[in-house]
């Protein structure tokens, strides 16, 4: 899943579940409403998710947390932990039975900043197998396949698609409207290629195959050989 920041809410997929970071400058009620709106809008996707809420120094009462827990539970999301620098907030979380520490990710103290050379990257799924006819892979993030994608198989990604092998099935990158998404393959011969709302059919290949990348340019899907750039 791609990181999302909107209306002061950042949602990130981690090993501990969805890490939801709330902007301290925005009122709690406003944040709560927009968080619930975002999550119920894509309820099918968030269904069954475990949420960790990161709320910084803000003081939140047990009643406020309890209300949010109930509202999230109503849309099938479990709220299990609160990360806060405020002792009062931690206490109210504990009385509700919420965790206030998670093992794998220490609370980032305010003011601390990650190194410039450290990149978070984006969420992708990786599959090492041949995708045969009738099989489908879908993800809101990027999709990387090490293997062939045979005719009759489908890949649908919110982000980009990379196939280290032959792509002969259907590929849809940027399926949620991202026109910057690309599709790369060692042999790019899809039955059909879609990027965002643009659809294209591969031309009959002449000559030998080579790695290619497809993207949108001037409102249409173009594919060009992947060349190692001279920097």
């Amino acid at each position: 899943m791609v990181d999302r920041v909107s209306n002061g809410i950042q949602i990130k997929g981690t090993r501990d579940g969805l890490m939801v970071t709330l902007d301290e400058k925005i009122a709690w009620e406003t944040l709560k409403e927009s968080l619930l709106a975002q999550m119920s809008e894509r309820a099918a996707f968030f269904q069954g998710a475990k949420v960790v809420l990161e709320i910084g120094n803000r003081v939140i009462t047990g009643e406020q947390l309890g209300k949010l827990k109930d509202d999230l539970a109503a849309i099938g999301i479990s709220f299990w932990a609160v990360l806060s620098q405020s002792a009062a907030t931690e206490e109210s979380a504990q009385t509700l039975g919420l965790a206030t520490r998670i093992h794998t990710r220490p609370v980032e103290r305010t003011g601390s900043k990650s190194l410039d050379s450290y990149l978070e990257g984006e969420q992708a799924i990786f599959l090492r197998k041949t995708l045969r006819s009738g099989f489908k892979v879908a993800s809101h993030g990027h999709i990387v396949i090490l293997g062939d994608v045979n005719p009759g198989a489908e890949i649908i990604a919110g982000g980009s698609i990379i196939v280290w092998g032959r792509l002969r099935g259907i590929a849809h990158a940027g399926a949620e409207g991202n026109e910057d998404a690309v599709v790369c393959a060692l042999d790019l011969s899809p039955t059909q290629l879609r990027i965002a709302d643009y659809v294209s059919i591969s031309p009959q290949r002449k000559g030998k195959t080579q790695p290619e990348v497809a993207y949108i340019e001037n409102q249409q899907v173009v594919a060009e050989p992947w060349v190692i750039k001279e920097h």
């Binding site: 045969r132 006819s133 009738g134 099989f135 045979n150 005719p151 009759g152």
Partner: peptide, 12 residues
């Protein structure tokens, strides 16, 4: 061949 591919996937 297309159907065989599907069947092989289902067998797997």
């Amino acid at each position: 061949v297309r159907d065989a591919d599907r069947i092989i996937g289902l067998v797997e």
